[in-house]
């Protein structure tokens, strides 16, 4: 199968921000070297955290606010009792319908150009509403930071600062096997489906493409050897119903009722001003003011 040499020179069209870019990870080509993790930390100046889980080659138990990409190691026996050692480069999927963007109360998280979900840490207030809203556990807020103002969300930015300057994402350009490919989303999908056909012909019956339709289309695509659930990836993920109810049900209804109530008060005020002239109530005794001495 063609290496990314065909895609290496690829740049998004600077005049067409609507163009959809993506990263495609062909997990069958990944050797688990973690060069992408290092490149990501280095380019984004993220802290190195020694956080290794014993008994696995995985470097961190999960993504965190300073760890934006992670090679997940899955060791298992397949249906035929054959040992399998699977790797999946995990990071933000840049969802077209993103839970994190829906939950974010500021504009820190945003649907940016080229289909990238951007995160502006300057704007972030560290509320962590994005954390439980992400179906992929891909965004985190630094809880270890002592000062509240240092608590910010962190996630893969698809190296927006690089790709908008005609460079490739740091992890892509460092990958020694070229298993991370970067380019036009449509083109990558074509490549991915062709690769899956090839894998099936080689006997990998469960090979599949992940990310084409999920959540309106992800901008991180995968060629997987096994079913998504084997990698811990959600099958047909959806936005949390509670989250969408909070955002699109409660909020507009609350605003409408509050608005109607305020309007009713204004109307009442105009009418009541005439009814209760001088603040005098109808049920009030009309005789001279009550006094202690009469």
């Amino acid at each position: 199968m063609g290496r990314t040499a065909t895609l290496a020179a690829w740049r998004p069209d600077p005049g067409n921000p609507k163009q959809q870019v993506a990263m495609l990870v062909d997990t069958t080509e990944c050797i688990g070297c973690k060069a992408c993790e290092v490149a990501c930390k280095q380019w984004n100046q993220n802290e190195y955290r020694i956080n290794q889980e014993l008994g696995t080659y995985q470097s961190h138990p999960s993504l965190d606010a300073q760890t934006w990409t992670l090679i997940k190691f899955i060791e298992r026996e397949d249906e035929d009792g054959v040992n399998q050692w699977l790797m999946q480069k995990h990071n933000c999927m840049h969802c077209s319908e993103a839970g994190c963007v829906t939950a974010c109360p500021t504009d820190a998280l945003h649907y940016g150009d080229y289909g990238v979900v951007t995160l502006d840490q300057e704007k972030c207030i560290g509320c962590a509403y994005c954390e439980p809203a992400c179906p992929f556990d891909a965004i985190h807020v630094d809880k270890s930071a002592f000062r509240q103002t240092a608590q910010k969300a962190g996630k893969c930015t698809l190296c927006f600062d690089r790709i908008s300057n005609a460079m490739q994402p740091a992890c892509v350009s460092t990958c020694p096997t070229d298993c991370i490919k970067y380019g036009d989303r449509g083109e990558l999908l074509k490549w991915a489906y062709a690769r899956v056909e090839q894998l099936k012909a080689m006997g990998y019956a469960n090979a599949n493409v992940y990310g084409d339709k999920e959540l309106g289309g992800l901008h991180e695509l995968y060629v997987l050897l096994e079913k998504p659930e084997v990698y811990g990836l959600p099958v047909n993920p959806t936005l949390s119903k509670r989250l969408t109810f909070w955002k699109y049900g409660l909020q507009p209804v609350g605003k409408a009722i509050l608005g109607a109530a305020l309007f009713g008060m204004v109307i009442n005020w105009f009418a009541a001003r005439r009814t209760f002239k001088g603040g005098h109530g109808p049920g009030e005794e009309a005789e001279a003011p009550a006094s202690l001495h009469d």
Partner: peptide, 10 residues
């Protein structure tokens, strides 16, 4: 939202 970003919001 935009008024309450960053340190103000924090």
């Amino acid at each position: 939202g935009p008024l309450l970003q960053g340190t103000v919001g924090q």
